[in-house]
Design a binder for these strands. Structure first.
Length: 628
RNA sequence: GGGCUGGUAGCUCAGCUUGGAUAGAGUGCUGGACUUCUAAUCCAGUGGUCGAGGGAUCGAAGCCCUCCCGGCCCGCCA
C-alpha cells in the first residue's frame, strides 16, 4: 500500500463528496503530483466542468473547500490551482512512518494481480545450432524480467524454453558435420555453440550459395530429422543437446533460469498435431481448398486483406505454423499431455530445478507446466503468425487474452559496429544475421563489460582481493547488459553499438548499483543496525521527502509493469530511485552529525532506500553490490 | 500493392492506453563542486514548428482523418 494509502484516502473522500452531489458516473484520476504541485493531484474539476457547466477553477475552489470537511489522516492540506487541478499535500510525519515501516517487509512492492493463478512465460527459444547473439539476449532478458514481475504480482509462473531441434537451421549444421567434414570438436577454448554458429553454420550455408545442387541434401536431412528413429535424427539430437547446454550456460550466467525445456522434435512425434487438426476441422476454423492457387491445401482464411495461410500442404504434410498450434494449445492445458518428465542433466545455479519433456518412460512423477494464461515472447517479425495463433487460441479457450504474443522490435547493429565486423552499411544500422555471420555474440559482450568493470573496480579499490573484484564485476556486467535490453520500450529498435554499450555512466545499471553501494557504505560506517523505531517528524526536507515518496511508489509501478507487461516501467523506477538517493546523498549528511536521533531517522530512510532498490533491481535480475 | 510498426532537444529515449498545470531524462556542449557517508556522483546553463496538414473539443504531443519519411512482415521455406 504505502503511498497508495494516501491516494486511496483522497479517492474515497472525493467519491463521498460526489455521492453527496448525486454524481456517480465520473472516473477522475488521483495521481502522484508533478514536482511543485503538492504530493497528489486530481483532475476531478475538469471532468465536473463538463457536467456542471462551470469553469474548472470555480469547481476546484468548491471542491477544496468541501474537502476540508472530510476525514483526513494522511492529508494535511488541499489547494485549488488556478489551472483547475486539485492539489493535495501529505501529512508527512504519518506517511513517513507508514512507508518506511512497510518498506522493511519482505513482501514490500508485491501486488495481487494474479490471484495466485498460473501463467506460462515462454522465452529464449533459440535454434540450437548457434550461440546466442545480442538480439537473442533481448528476448531472454525480456522474458525473464516479465516472469519476475509476474511472480511479484502473485502469479504462479511456469517458465519454458522451446527448443526447435528439428528445423532447417539444425539441418544445416548437421549437413556441415555429415557431408562437409566439420569436426565434432571445437578448437580448444571455443564454446561448442560458438563453434557451431560461427564456423559450421556460416560456412555450410556459404556452400549452398555456391552450389545450389546441395539443396537436395539439405531437404533430405530435414526430412530425416523428423523421423526419430533415423541415424541422422539421433546424431542431431546429440549435437543439439550439446549446443543447448552451451546456450544455457550463457543464460544462467545472466541470472536466467527455466522450469522446463520443451523439444520441438518431441511435439512432432507426440501426435499432438493430428488431434489439433481434427479439432480445427470440427470447429470449422480451417477450410479445404478445392481450387485456386492453394488447391488441395487446408488453409486459415486471412483477415483484413491478408493472404490465406496454408496449414497443410497438398501432399498432406503440415507447415511450420501448424507445428506451433499444438504447442500453443498444450501450453494452455487444452490437450491431454503426452509427455513424461525428467530432470535436466545439469543443475541450474541456485538449485532452480529444471525439467525437460521426454517421450520415453520416466521414473519421475508427472509434472504440469501449463497455465491458464500464456505469454509467448517472440520478436515482432513473427507478429503475423502469432496473431493467427492468438486468434485460434481465443476460440479454443473462449477468452481473448488467454494467449498473449509479447512482441518486441529487433536488435540491429549500429553503423559503426557493423563496420567493425567488416560490413559497409552506408552509415545505416543493419539487421543481424546468424546465417551470414553478422552478429555480436552475447558472451563476448559480457566478457568486454566484465573486463572493463574489473579495471574500474581495481582502480577504485586497490586493496580488494581478486575474487571480490571478480564477483562485483560480474554483477555489474550482467546488470549493465540486462538494463540496456529493457530500459526502452518494446516497440523501439535497439541499434546495438559495441562502444556505447560499454558506458557505465548516466542512465545505466552501474549508476543505479552505485547508489546502492553508497547507501550500504553509510550503514556500514554508522556501526549501527537501522531501526524503524525512530522519530519520523525529523525527516522533513525536500531531499528526504522526495526519497520517501518514491520509495512509497514501488507497488504502483509493479502493478503498472505487470498489467502492461512492460518491464521498462521497473527500469525507470530503479533509475528514479537512484536519482532521488544520489541527490539526497550529495545534500544531506547521515552520520557524524552529533545528533543521534536525527542520524537514526536518516539511517532508517537510507536503509529503506537500500531494501527497496534491492527488491526493484531483483525484478530486473540485477544484483545490488554493497561495494563497487 | 496489403498488413503491422516507429517519427518528441545535435544524438538515444520517457510522456500517448486514461486529453488539462511548466513537454521530461540520459548523452553532447559550457561552467562549477572531491582533506567530507565512495566524483561510476552532484549542481547550474545550453538545447524543442512534439514528422506535416486538417478535424472534433473550452483545451491536443496524446483522440479521429489524410498525407510524408523510416523499419519489419506478406512461400505448399523454417
Amino acid at each position: 500500500m504505502s503511498f497508495k494509502s494516501l491516494i486511496d484516502e483522497i479517492e474515497n473522500n472525493i467519491h463521498k463528496i460526489l455521492d453527496d452531489m448525486s454524481i456517480f458516473d465520473i472516473s477522475f484520476t488521483v495521481e502522484p503530483a508533478k514536482p511543485g504541485f503538492g504530493d497528489v493531484s486530481s483532475n476531478v474539476s475538469f471532468l465536473l466542468a463538463k457536467h456542471l457547466k462551470k469553469n474548472p477553477k470555480e469547481i476546484a475552489d468548491f471542491m477544496s473547500e468541501t474537502y476540508q470537511k472530510s476525514k483526513s489522516t494522511l492529508v494535511s492540506k488541499v489547494e485549488s490551482h488556478p489551472s483547475g487541478y486539485l492539489n493535495f499535500f501529505a501529512n508527512w510525519e504519518k506517511l513517513n512512518q507508514l512507508i518506511l515501516s512497510e518498506s522493511n517487509l519482505d513482501e514490500f512492492g508485491s501486488v495481487d494481480l494474479g490471484k495466485n493463478s498460473t501463467i506460462v512465460v515462454e522465452h529464449t527459444s533459440v535454434n540450437p545450432n548457434k550461440a546466442l547473439h545480442i538480439g537473442h539476449i533481448r528476448n531472454v532478458v525480456l522474458g525473464d524480467t516479465i516472469a519476475r514481475i509476474l511472480k511479484k504480482s502473485n502469479y504462479k509462473v511456469n517458465i519454458l524454453n522451446y527448443v526447435d531441434d528439428s528445423g532447417l537451421q539444425v539441418a544445416d549444421i548437421i549437413v556441415g558435420f555429415t557431408y562437409f567434414g566439420f569436426s565434432q570438436d571445437p578448437p580448444s577454448g571455443k564454446k561448442f555453440d560458438h563453434y557451431c554458429g560461427d564456423d559450421v553454420y556460416v560456412k555450410t550455408t556459404e556452400k549452398y550459395e555456391k552450389d545450389p545442387s546441395l539443396e537436395e541434401i539439405r531437404k533430405k536431412t530435414l526430412k530425416d530429422l523428423e523421423d526419430g528413429n533415423s541415424e541422422i535424427a539421433q546424431f542431431a539430437d546429440k549435437i543439439t543437446r550439446r549446443v543447448l547446454e552451451s546456450q544455457l550456460e550463457t543464460c544462467w550466467n545472466l541470472g536466467i533460469y527455466y522450469d522446463c525445456l520443451n523439444f520441438e522434435s518431441q511435439i512432432i512425434r507426440s501426435g499432438l498435431w493430428g488431434k489439433i487438426f481434427e479439432k480445427l476441422k470440427e470447429m470449422c476454423l480451417i477450410e479445404f481448398e478445392n481450387e485456386g492457387k492453394n488447391e488441395g491445401c487446408w488453409v486459415i482464411r486471412g483477415e483484413n486483406n491478408e493472404e490465406d495461410k496454408v496449414l497443410v500442404r497438398s501432399n498432406g504434410t503440415a507447415t511450420y505454423i501448424a507445428k506451433d498450434i499444438p504447442y500453443a494449445a498444450w501450453k494452455l492445458g487444452l490437450l491431454e499431455d503426452p509427455f513424461k518428465y525428467q530432470k535436466y542433466e545439469k543443475t541450474q545455479p541456485g538449485n532452480h530445478l529444471l525439467w525437460q519433456t521426454t517421450l520415453v518412460s520416466s521414473n519421475e512423477i508427472k509434472q504440469n507446466f501449463t497455465g491458464e494464461k500464456v505469454i509467448t515472447v517472440i520478436d515482432s517479425r513473427q507478429a503475423r503468425l502469432q496473431k493467427i495463433i492468438t486468434n485460434l487460441m481465443s476460440k479454443f479457450k473462449s477468452a481473448d487474452d488467454a494467449y498473449v504474443h509479447l512482441g518486441y522490435e529487433s536488435v540491429t547493429l549500429s553503423a559503426d559496429t557493423a563496420q567493425t565486423l567488416g560490413l559497409d552499411t552506408d552509415g545505416k544500422q543493419t539487421q543481424m544475421s546468424g546465417r551470414k555471420g553478422h552478429y555480436v555474440n552475447a558472451d563476448s559482450v559480457y566478457d568486454l563489460l566484465k573486463n572493463k568493470t574489473i579495471e574500474e573496480t581495481r582502480k577504485r579499490h586497490p586493496e580488494m582481493s581478486d575474487p571480490e573484484i571478480e564477483k562485483i564485476s560480474h554483477h555489474v556486467a550482467v546488470g549493465t547488459l540486462r538494463y540496456e535490453m529493457i530500459k526502452q520500450d518494446l516497440d523501439k529498435i535497439i541499434a546495438f553499438d559495441l562502444a556505447k554499450s560499454l558506458s557505465l555512466e548516466g542512465d545505466t545499471a552501474p549508476y543505479i548499483q552505485y547508489s546502492h553501494a553508497r547507501a550500504s557504505r553509510i550503514i556500514e560506517k554508522s556501526m549501527r543496525v537501522p531501526s524503524i523505531d525512530v522519530d519520523f517528524s525529523l525527516l522533513n526536507d525536500k531531499f528526504e521527502l522526495d526519497l520517501v515518496k518514491i520509495i512509497g511508489l514501488f507497488d504502483i509501478y509493479v502493478l503498472d509493469a505487470a498489467k502492461n507487461l512492460s518491464p521498462k516501467v521497473i527500469a525507470r523506477y530503479c533509475h528514479d530511485l537512484a536519482v532521488a538517493f544520489s541527490s539526497f546523498y550529495e545534500h544531506v549528511k547521515v552520520i557524524d552529525l552529533g545528533n543521534e536521533k536525527l542520524e537514526n531517522s536518516r539511517l532508517c530512510l537510507v536503509n529503506s532506500f537500500k531494501l527497496t532498490l534491492e527488491k526493484a533491481l531483483e525484478l530486473l535480475g540485477i544484483v545490488s553490490p554493497d561495494k563497487m
